[in-house]
Structure formats: structure tokens, C-alpha cells
Simulated assay, not measured.
Amino acid sequence: MNKINLNKLYYFYIVAKEGSVKSASEKLHLTQPTISSQIKELEEDLGFDVFIRKHRKLDLNRNGRFVLKKAEKLFAIADELENALPIRGKAERVKINIGAIQSLSNSFIYNFSMKLWQDDSVYIRITQGSQEELMKKMDRGEIDLILSDGNYGKSKKLKSILLGQDKIVAVGPKDLEFNKRKFPKNLEDYHYISFSNQGRLQEDVEYFFDRENIHPEKIGEVDDITLMKVITKHTQSFSILPHRAVKNQLQRGDLKLLGELKELKTGLWAIFPSLSANKLVIRKVLNDYFHRKSKK
């Protein structure tokens, strides 16, 4: 029997605890083929198999259960040793800068970056601005990833990943007298508050109004989505926003749903450089986001 490699043993330990290579790969942030090959090499070093392989299912065999018990004791001792060591100076946190356009809700921005805020090895800076401003900062290397409502990253130097889609809705104050049967044409009978930045959402809304020959009176522009919701709540005006941005306000009754612009959808995109010093952190946050999304 060859000398046991502790890294390979640890991968086996995590797979056995998680119950599958897929779950272990998400926990370890490694690809499934990498973990599978490491376990195969461990079995070769041990001189026996540790799993019963049935299709894609892995079950511990008798030898595997024995190795797992020993591994549990070994890594428990390692944890005790680490906790008993004198406090060492903490390593410097990896800095990652995330840009988000102003039409995205704060809840979505937090939900996307949730894992990073819980990571002791990461320092996060979030900047909100227009698409143009954020792209310029990315060109200067000041931003690692942009959360956007459009796929603006069509170049060899940038990658764009679709995070999801959301419906577009018109909302007004809860006491607004509004005939939903005449929606959307009757929107022109009310005052309208729009985004001041020319993002994809605003472009799509203006195109929709022109196509449907709807001409509401615009009384102002706001570049902050939270402020827009507050103003809409306290004035006899309407605004057009992604549904997830106003979902909580609609549930609480702070705002009234006037209707859905069914022809319109807004995309949620992550844009980042193809070559990035923070590639591993970006991959980590994307994997975590899609993992949590798949469980909903």
C-alpha cells in the first residue's frame, strides 16, 4: 500500500459526508471529475475500493465505512489542534469590487453576494451607478463584476452569464383609483416617474410606450430604485419596475399593482472580464448563487 495522501482522504471524507460527488464538488468548489479522479487514486493507494458504484450512485462498502471512521477521528484531531494553536495574524482579505446598475433591487444585490458577506477571506465593495459608468470602471480595473439588466459584455475580453429573468410591472400608491381593465392604455391618464439613467429597462419601457401609442406625463426622474418606490408610494403617480424590486411592497400593501407589461422581460446578468485576478472568487459566488437558486 502506498503512503496515504491526506488531500485525497479529505475529498473522500467530504463525499462520504455529503452523500454524492456533486454535493462535495459544490462544497469544495472543485469539479466533479477532479474529485472522482482523486477518490480513484485513493482507492489505488489503499489497494481496495471504498464505494459500491451503481450507475451514478455511491454507497460506502465495508472497507469504506472503516476508512470513514478513521478519517473522522483524524480530521477531528486536526480541528482540535488548529483550535488549540495560538491566535495567528489573519491573512489579508481578498478584495472584490461589484458594480450594480441602479434599477436592480437591493434585495437582489444582497441575495447574489450573500455568500461573500459570510466569507472571512473576502473584503467586498459594492458600487451602484449607470451601465456606462460601471463599464468604464471595469475597463480601468476598478470593478471585478457588474450586475446588469442587459447583456452588454459581448466581446472577447468580457463574459456575460444570465442569472435569471423578471417580469416588468407598473405600480402606484395603494389608494390610486385605477381601472385595471383598461391597462395599459390608461397609464397615460396618470403622472409617470422614470429612471434617469438610460439602462436597458428604461429603453424597453420607452419603446413599449411608443409602440402602444401611450404618452403619460413624466413628472420626474430618479436614479435610485429605493427612492423611486418611496416617491411612488406618496404621490398619485406610477412607476415601472422589475417585479422582484417591488414584491415586498406589494405583499405589504404599500404599493398597488396596476398591471404587468407582458411583452417586456428584464434579464439579470453578471458581466466580468475573461481574465480576472479574482476569477476564483467570481466562480465561487456564481456557483453559490445558482446552487441556491436550484433549490428554490
Rank of each mutant, 00 (worst) to 15 (best):
K157S: 10
K137A: 13
G253W: 00
S113N: 12
K295W: 01
L145F: 02
W117H: 10
K136A: 11
E44H: 06
V122D: 08
N278R: 10
D79N: 15
Q128F: 00
Y207S: 15
D144V: 01
V21R: 07
L147V: 08
S294D: 10
L46V: 04
H243D: 11
E41H: 09
I240K: 05
K137T: 11
F178V: 12
S155D: 13
N97A: 14
D49H: 04
G64V: 04
K279T: 14
R56C: 05
P33W: 00
H215K: 01
S105R: 02
L257D: 10
A100C: 05
E221N: 15
I143C: 07
L6D: 10
S23T: 13
E203A: 15
I271L: 04
D144I: 01
E263A: 10
V67P: 07
I214Y: 00
S20H: 08
L176Y: 01
I96P: 03
K262P: 05
I282R: 09
A100S: 15
Y152W: 03
I271H: 06
E80G: 08
E133S: 08
L81P: 05
G19T: 11
A91E: 14
A16R: 09
I14P: 07
F108H: 07
S37P: 05
G141T: 06
K73R: 11
H55V: 11
L42S: 14
R244V: 09
D223V: 12
I77D: 12
K156G: 11
E82D: 12
V169I: 06
R62H: 07
R125K: 09
K17S: 12
E212G: 08
K180W: 01
I193A: 12
R62S: 11
S20K: 03
I52K: 14
K296L: 05
I124S: 09
R88G: 12
R283C: 04
Y123W: 00
E263T: 08
E221T: 15
K57A: 12
Q251T: 11
S294E: 10
S160C: 06
N97E: 10
K265T: 15
L286C: 05
L258H: 06
L187Q: 04
A100Y: 01
F66V: 13
P173Q: 04
L42W: 01
E26R: 07
T31H: 06
F195L: 03
L85R: 14
I143A: 06
R88F: 02
T235L: 03
N7H: 08
V15K: 06
F66N: 13
L74M: 13
Q251Y: 04
L250E: 10
I146L: 04
P216D: 02
H29Q: 15
V169M: 01
V169A: 07
A16D: 12
V230E: 15
S105C: 05
K156Q: 11
A24K: 09
D79E: 13
S155Q: 08
I101S: 09
D223Y: 04
F75W: 00
D189P: 04
R53H: 08
H291F: 05
K293F: 01
N287T: 14
H291R: 11
A270M: 02
L176C: 09
M228D: 10
V246Y: 02
T232W: 00
R244M: 09
L162M: 07
G99N: 05
Y190Q: 05
G89N: 14
L255P: 04
L258T: 14
Q236E: 14
H191W: 02
N151D: 15
L257S: 09
S37L: 07
V205T: 08
K136Y: 03
N97R: 15
K167T: 13
